[in-house]
Write a protein that binds this DNA or RNA. Structure first.
Length: 591
RNA sequence: GGUCGCGUAGCUCAAUUGGUUAGAGCGCCGCCCUGUCACGGCGGAGGUUGCGAGUUCGAGCCUCGUCGCGACCGCCA
């Protein structure tokens, strides 16, 4: 039996010179000079240059891109002046003594070294796309992260336990994928949005410390950072407080950064309240790598002659402003664009002031007193060339509007070269003290800010009956560079509290609460320990480590924006027989 | 579901105001080439300009429809 290889394609060095070796791999490129030919042989690990003499090996002329070949030969030093410093193996080459074409290849539909190729084409030929060194590196990073997490969790005493993929529909949250049951015609499973309820049941079961790299499913519209199936680092622990989770996750991320990037990150992470982070940045997951904080001017404008501001304050609202440093150069159409953005965030309009040519230019500046101008100048540290953006509304809305503009403005400034967000900085922090309950003005009812199993902060429990939206939940989010990496909470472990949340606060009818969550409430009644957990988006985490925006770059076989797999052409129709067995009829004319 | 943008060679893109036979680079095919690594030289093939209609003497370009792709909003407890 012939060996296919003795080394991989990134392995050979000067110290291996004069060794007889065997390499196998793909032809990454060929440079055929007629009387002498070079081939860059590629495998998962890297490239090695092969030198072929066509007089001895005539098949050298037949080689084409992506042919799979086996080379027997000798490692030799490259001649003076032909060393390639860009290649790890660039000081040597392999002089081929035997060449075997193990498999030919069709001409690739697109050049594998081209970065800027339509993504639909890449997805259609994903098996070629994954051969590209950048993609191979992403797969490897993902593996390293998973391995590190498993090792760390094992050391911390956690058990990895699989939970069912065929689960029950719980229409409270995201839209679910539905799976029909043949053995129970007319009944359906749903694929889990997360293993939330099972991990709580595992705590009731006394498992104590559970984790899983859990596949989750959501049938919602997709984005660059959203796929219909994705993976969470999911965990749950018993007899803990929030602090235990913070320490555990800080330790895990420290290890992951060390393993994947060889970087030391500083722990513990800062903890910021939801109120403070919204107040300063207008977002519950701000990118703090650039400043541009929101400032409060409610006091300044409460008696202003500018009625829009004074009126907002009189109605119990706030006036907030932000200094878009260096953006006084915006055109009217860009102002219109910002106004449009502000409106989609819920504002009625957008007030702005350009600080340009030593004066303030704005349709509203004539209403401002000297004292008001002075307050703005001081708090916003105004300088020539700045642009002030205002929001006057109820606190939450004003913050949200400016928070959205903050991101748009940062993007504009970045494009102009006036702002650069440091790519190598990792700004981790915890957001805590979220409101447990949010009032949904559209649906005119209370809903759980995160999920209905979150435990209230103990001293706020009396407020549940009187001011439910003032109750803080024992929820925590971990944020990195403007991305919500994950979130979790200490859960409700007393059945009567859980029932009260479902029935009194969320107003889920008793029967529905019973059929949907009855088993959970029942389980809590059998000695559920205090417990809590967290879930981190593995895909987002790996994407950040790989320096890419899209999680599709770190998933081997992702779906496109319409949740289709272009390589296998799924979803697809099924046989009529299959539908008959399931007692399912498909409405015609809907495709 | 809504708004906006884009569909030209296998890939990435160009084509002046609507005007001759729709071009370039890479890739592909053939021939030549003994030190390349973006190899080089010569030659060649390759197009229903997404699809359908309309306006016009004339449409890649304008209009309408349609399909596909992408971004954003809604949605994502």
């Amino acid at each position: 039996m012939k060996t296919h290889r003795t080394h991989h394609c990134a392995q050979l060095r000067k110290t291996d010179i004069s060794q007889k070796i065997v390499l196998s791999g793909w032809v990454a490129s060929r440079r055929d000079h007629g009387g002498l030919a070079f081939v860059d042989l590629r495998d998962r690990e890297g490239l090695t240059q092969i030198v072929l003499d066509p007089q001895k090996l005539p098949a050298a002329h037949d080689l084409r891109s992506e042919f799979v070949i086996r080379i027997e030969g000798e490692v030799v030093a490259r001649p003076e002046g032909t060393v390639n410093t860009k290649l790890a193996t660039g000081e040597i080459e392999v002089r081929a003594e035997q060449l075997e074409i193990l498999n030919k290849s069709e001409t690739p539909p697109y050049p594998l070294d081209e970065e800027n190729v339509g993504e639909d084409l890449r997805l259609q030929y994903r098996y070629l796309d994954l051969r590209r060194p950048a993609m191979a590196r992403n797969l490897r990073t993902r593996h390293r992260v998973c391995k590190t997490v498993r090792d760390y969790m094992d050391e911390q005493g956690f058990l990895e336990i699989e939970t069912p993929i065929l689960f029950k529909s719980t229409p409270e949250g995201a839209r679910e994928y539905i799976v029909p049951s043949r053995t129970n015609p007319g009944l359906f499973f749903a694929l889990p949005q997360s293993p939330q309820q099972f991990k709580q049941l595992l705590m009731v079961a006394g498992v104590d410390k559970y984790f899983q790299l859990a596949r989750c499913f959501r049938d919602e519209d997709l984005r660059a950072d959203r796929q219909p199936e994705f993976t969470q680092i999911d965990l749950e622990m018993s007899f803990i407080t929030r602090e235990d989770i913070y320490r555990l996750i800080e330790g895990m991320l420290k290890r992951v950064w060390k393993e994947a990037l060889s970087l030391e990150i500083v722990t513990p992470f800062e903890r910021v309240t939801y109120h403070d982070v919204m107040d300063s940045y207008g977002s519950d997951k701000p990118d703090r790598r650039f400043e541009m904080r929101l400032q409060d001017f409610t006091e300044t404008f409460k008696a202003s002659t500018f009625k829009v501001f004074a009126g907002a304050v009189a109605a119990g609202g706030v006036v907030k402003a932000m200094n878009a440093k260096g953006l006084a150069c915006v055109t009217q159409s860009q102002i219109d664009l910002l106004t449009e953005q502000a409106k989609t965030a819920g504002a009625k309009g957008l007030a702005w002031i350009k600080v340009e040519g030593g004066t303030w230019k704005s349709p509203i500046v004539k209403f401002f007193s000297e004292a008001e101008k002075a307050a703005l100048t001081e708090k916003l540290k105004l300088e020539e060339g700045d642009l002030i953006l205002f929001a006057a509304d109820q606190w939450a809305s004003a913050c949200e509007v400016l928070g959205k503009l903050r991101l748009v403005v940062a993007e504009m400034l970045t494009k102009m070269g006036k702002l650069s967000v440091p790519k190598d900085r990792y700004d981790f922090f915890w957001v805590v003290d979220f409101p447990l309950i949010t009032y949904d003005h559209v649906a005119q009812r209370h809903s759980a800010t995160h999920h209905p199993f979150t435990s209230p902060v103990e001293e706020d429990v009396p407020l549940l009956a009187t001011h439910p939206t003032k109750v803080r939940g024992q929820h925590y989010d971990i944020v990195l560079n403007g991305v919500e990496l994950g979130g979790g909470s200490i859960r409700i472990h007393q059945p009567e509290v859980q029932k009260r949340i479902f029935e009194d606060i969320l107003k889920i009818p008793k029967e529905i609460a019973e059929t949907r969550f009855g088993y959970l409430i029942k389980a809590l009644g059998y000695g559920a320990p205090p417990h809590g957990g967290i879930a981190l988006g593995l895909d987002r985490l790996v994407a950040i480590l790989c320096g890419t925006e899209s999680i599709r770059e770190v998933i081997a076989f992702p779906k496109n924006a319409r949740a289709q797999d272009l390589m296998t052409s799924s979803p697809a129709e099924v046989e009529p027989r299959q539908l008959r067995e399931l007692k399912i009829q498909v409405e015609t004319g809907n495709r």
